[in-house]
Every structure is written in C-alpha cells, then in structure tokens.
Amino acid sequence: MQQSLKQVGSILLYFLGSIGYLASAAAIVAISVIIKFAALLLADRVLYTIFIIGDLLRGIEIIELLNILVFAFIGMGFGVGTKLLPPKFGRQISAALLIPIVPLVFMSTPLLRYSLWLDKVAEKDNLSPAQTQTLTNSFLNQRVRSGGFLGYYIYTAQFPVIPTKQSEMQDLDSFEKKVNSRFVQLTGIYPTVVTWAMRICFWLLRIFYFSIAVIATIAHFRDGLRIAGR
C-alpha cells in the first residue's frame, strides 16, 4: 500500500513537473521573440535611420548580434528546465525541443521584418491587406521569382533596402541605383562590385548569425544542465 502511494506520488510529481516545464519553455520562447521584436523596432527607429550607415547596418542585419544573448537565454533556460523532468529523459526531451525551436526563433526576426514591410507598403500607398499582398507578391516574383515571405527573404539577402512605395517598385532601377550610390560613397567601391559583394556577404552573414545562435544555445544548454545537476 505504501509503495503504491509512493508510485502515485512520483507520477503526480512528474506530471506537475512536466506542466511546469512546458509552461517555462513557452515563456522562454515568448520572451525571446518579444526581445527580438523590441530590438528590431528600436533598430528601425534609431540605427537604420542613420544617413548612409543605416542602410549598411540594415543590410548586415546588425541586430542579429543580439542572438548571442537571446539564444544563450534559451539554451540556459531549457538546460535548467530539465530539473522539472524525469532524470532519465529530461536531457533528451529538452535537446529534442531545441532542434525546431532554435531555427524558428531565429527566423522570427525576418518574419517580423516582412510583416513590418507589408504594413509600411499599405500605409504609404493607402492599400488594403489584399492589395498590399498582391502588389508585394508581384514585385517579389518579378525580382526573385518567389512571392511572400520566401521572396522577401531572398530579395533582402541580395539587396539591403526594399522599396516601400508602389512608385519605387515600378522604377526599381532608379531606387537600387540610389541605394547603391550610398554604399559607393561609404566604401569607394565600384557599383557592380558593391552589388556582387552584397549578394555574397549577406548570405554568409546569415549563416554566421545562425551559427552563433546554435553555438550559444548548445554552450549554455550544457551550463544549464550542470546547474540542474543533469
């Protein structure tokens, strides 16, 4: 009888621990996304508005350096959170959850930027959501042969500034030349070299930022496990 009560107590304890773990995991992810969103808004209003340099900072997605802190927080949180799970499976469960969570949280920034871009297009040309979607998809399909978020992600990997007005989209050559001239002024490099350099460097930077996210998560996940004694 006493042994049965202990088993029931253990099951109840693990059940409550699992609920606490899920709640903690959801809170960690939510806080991380909120931090990234707040940082993005701040960068849009302060960093990216700086003359000439702002476009460069936007292009290299400087705000992604925040990933070091954000993913350190995620890794540490999920590591410590294993304390709430059964010792036998805690590490494996947290590690398995981190595999989809890390890329999803990482991609939250470009997703938010895409949403903000749609809002700006709609606001500047006074368009409805449906009209905005049609206009932006048409523009992206013409430029990178893909619409929606994927088209936006590909385009911004090739060019740091994306037009927010219908007139700019229709006269894109002038718009891109204007932006390129700012980079030429800043770097002193020929426009054609600037264009190719941006296409290569921006993709490499995205890979670099994601690598930072993964490394920070793994390193601090291990620290969290040590703190939790797992």
Rank of each mutant, 00 (worst) to 15 (best):
S174H: 14
M107T: 09
A213R: 02
W196R: 09
S32M: 02
S94A: 15
G9T: 13
K165R: 10
G59L: 02
G224R: 05
Q131C: 06
I74K: 04
I200T: 15
I74W: 04
S10Q: 14
L66N: 13
G79E: 00
W203Q: 09
H220C: 10
A38L: 13
P100N: 11
T164Y: 04
L41N: 02
T49C: 01
F221N: 12
I162Q: 03
T217P: 13
Y152F: 15
L69V: 03
I11F: 12
R199F: 15
S211Y: 10
R113M: 12
I154A: 01
A96Y: 11
N180H: 02
L5S: 05
Q7A: 08
L56C: 04
G54K: 06
G151D: 08
K165D: 03
T132C: 07
Q7I: 12
P100Q: 09
Y21T: 11
I34H: 05
D44N: 14
A38D: 07
A219S: 08
I31F: 12
E168R: 01
F175S: 02
I62M: 01
Y14V: 14
A122V: 07
Q166E: 02
L16Q: 07
A95S: 06
Y153G: 02
S146G: 12
K165G: 01
V102A: 03
A228H: 07
T192M: 03
I227Y: 02
V179P: 09
L204W: 14
N126H: 06
L118W: 05
A27C: 12
K120C: 08
Y155F: 10
K178W: 08
A39L: 14
L42P: 09
R113A: 10
V8S: 10
K120V: 14
K120G: 05
R143T: 06
F51E: 10
N180K: 05
A26D: 01
F106N: 04
F73Q: 14
R113Y: 09
A39R: 09
T109G: 01
G9I: 13
P110K: 09
R230D: 04
L47V: 08
P129Q: 05
K88G: 11
A30F: 06
I11M: 07
L12R: 07
R226M: 08
I212Q: 00
P87Q: 07
I189Y: 08
D119L: 00
G81D: 00
I227D: 03
K36W: 12
D119M: 04
R230H: 07
P160L: 05
S167C: 11
L65S: 03
P87K: 13
